[in-house]
């Protein structure tokens, strides 16, 4: 649910990074945080365990610039990927405007990817959203690893609807901003459609 404030002339949107445990959702946000100017970003919050696994969510507010005199602000969230945190994942999807699915390219994580994508669809439906109807992009992360699955295989399993997709290596930053831009564009295009 985007929030448009005429008084402060701002558009606020919420983007959620979803995916299985250890796929690199937090690393995506950390890279964005490290590479953006201090004047466009707020503080990054990570509610993590002592072993740096996301416990509840990570949060990063970003200001992208102005569009028709309105400041566009994106609030980026990650969900905890581990299977048993499902209750928390549902909560974070509340009011979402766009979703990035971060897939782990390692061949042995393929089942976890598929399970997480199914879980995303179920949890979105519970909130009354359909994945097919919201701005959504897929990121194939960890492409640099030797045990990465063939791209074709990943596409077949994880991107049946052919949404924008990106190869990435979040630790080096490859593909991170491309993914963010694609989902942000999707959200803004949706806003445009809503008004037409």
């Amino acid at each position: 649910m985007s929030f448009i404030n005429y008084s402060s002339r701002e558009i606020n949107c919420k983007i959620v990074y979803y995916g299985p445990g250890l796929c690199g959702k937090t690393t995506n946000l950390q890279h964005i945080y490290n590479k953006t100017n201090p004047d466009v970003k707020g503080k990054m919050i990570s509610l993590a365990t002592e072993t740096e696994r996301t416990l509840f969510f990570d949060f990063l507010p970003l200001a992208l610039g102005e569009i028709r005199g309105f400041k566009t602000r994106f609030h980026l969230y990650t969900v905890p990927g581990q299977v048993f945190y499902d209750a928390s994942r549902k909560l974070i999807l509340k009011g979402v405007d766009g979703v990035v699915f971060v897939a782990d390219s390692q061949i042995e994580r393929m089942e976890a990817n598929v399970e997480s994508l199914d879980n995303l669809k179920v949890n979105l439906l519970e909130q009354g959203y359909e994945l097919e109807k919201i701005p959504y992009v897929v990121q194939y992360n960890k492409r640099d690893l030797p045990n990465a699955a063939p791209l074709e295989e990943m596409k077949r399993l994880l991107n049946a609807t052919n949404v924008p997709e990106f190869e990435a290596c979040a630790t080096t930053g490859k593909g991170v901003f491309e993914t963010l831009k694609a989902v942000a564009k999707g959200v803004l295009s949706d806003l445009k459609k809503m008004g037409s």
């Binding site: 992208l64 569009i67 809503m194 037409s196």
Partner: peptide, 21 residues
Amino acid sequence: DAAASGSPFAEITDDDIDNLF
């Protein structure tokens, strides 16, 4: 507003969006 299509963002162009990036 939504029903009356009063949103100012109907007029956003693809260029506006591209310019942000």
